[in-house]
């Protein structure tokens, strides 16, 4: 950065994007699969015998919850890579942060859609039962994680603190998943990953749900890659601004 002339216009003549051929392919895949879920979920899958039409909420609710779990696991893995890596690369920290942001978004979606499903099925939007409470707690934990990332610190301090927190927070996921087995819960047990290994779901519903999971996972990958690249550009800009300020000071001195 030593060749930066103080006061020079740093605006690039052609804006650099964060997309690549690979991310465009992932985005296109997600768009196609979402179209499939939309059409299949609304028209080609049947209503459920007891739930009726409200079963269609499942095609958003379950993939959202799955992606939230996945996102928090990715955050933990990236955090571990940061802490254990020899170079302590901030790239891992950026992936951890981006994944947590997307995870919080999808966890909120899972909570909202679950609540919308609960009213016509259970007769209530919310109960303080083990599954719902631990899920709410998981959501709040990761909002806290994002808050820790936002507190004033150097990038290295931020990365170290949030990595430790991420490794602790991820331990909540088994508690959430098995809460319906460990305690008596209004929430039903898992249908696909059921403890007895028997999938108790109509074939077309299961297919649409599976496509939904792949669609949401593709969207997750697309969002995380873009978000961490935006963060990398932000960090590069901060370094450039710092170099520029040092250069200005050097000229003044």
């Amino acid at each position: 950065m030593a060749d930066v002339v103080p006061g020079a216009d740093l605006t690039p003549t052609r804006p650099r994007g964060v997309a690549t051929r690979a991310t465009r392919a992932i985005g296109a895949l997600a768009a196609v699969l979402f179209a499939w879920v939309l059409v299949g979920g609304l028209w080609f899958t049947p209503a459920e015998k007891q739930q009726g039409e409200s079963v269609r909420i499942m095609y958003v609710h379950v993939p959202s919850a799955w992606v939230a779990y996945l996102a928090f696991v990715v955050t933990a893995v990236a955090s571990a890579c940061y802490l254990l890596g020899r170079r302590r690369s901030l790239g891992f920290d950026r992936v951890a942060g981006a994944s947590a942001e997307v995870g919080v978004l999808f966890m909120a979606l899972a909570l909202v859609t679950g609540s919308l499903w609960g009213h016509p099925t259970w007769g209530t939007f919310w109960v303080w039962d083990p599954r719902l409470t631990t899920t709410a707690f998981l959501f709040v934990t990761y909002v806290g994680y994002l808050a820790v990332r936002g507190t004033g610190a150097t990038p290295e301090q931020r990365a170290r603190r949030s990595a430790v927190l991420a490794l602790l927070a991820v331990l909540e996921i088994p508690l959430v998943h098995f809460s319906v087995v460990l305690w008596r819960s209004l929430h039903q047990q898992a249908s696909v990953l059921s403890p007895d290994g028997d999938v108790k779901m109509d074939g077309s519903m299961l297919t649409t749900l599976f496509v939904g999971v792949v669609a949401f996972t593709s969207l997750f990958a697309w969002l995380v890659v873009h978000r961490q690249r935006v963060q990398a550009m932000g960090d590069a800009l901060a370094i450039r601004e710092l170099d520029d300020a040092i250069a200005v000071r050097g000229v003044a001195g």
Binding site: G123, L186, Q189, S191
Partner: peptide, 11 residues
């Protein structure tokens, strides 16, 4: 509150 099982049967 009404419980729903983990079975999803087509109407």
């Amino acid at each position: 509150e009404v419980k729903h099982s983990n079975e999803y049967v087509a109407e």
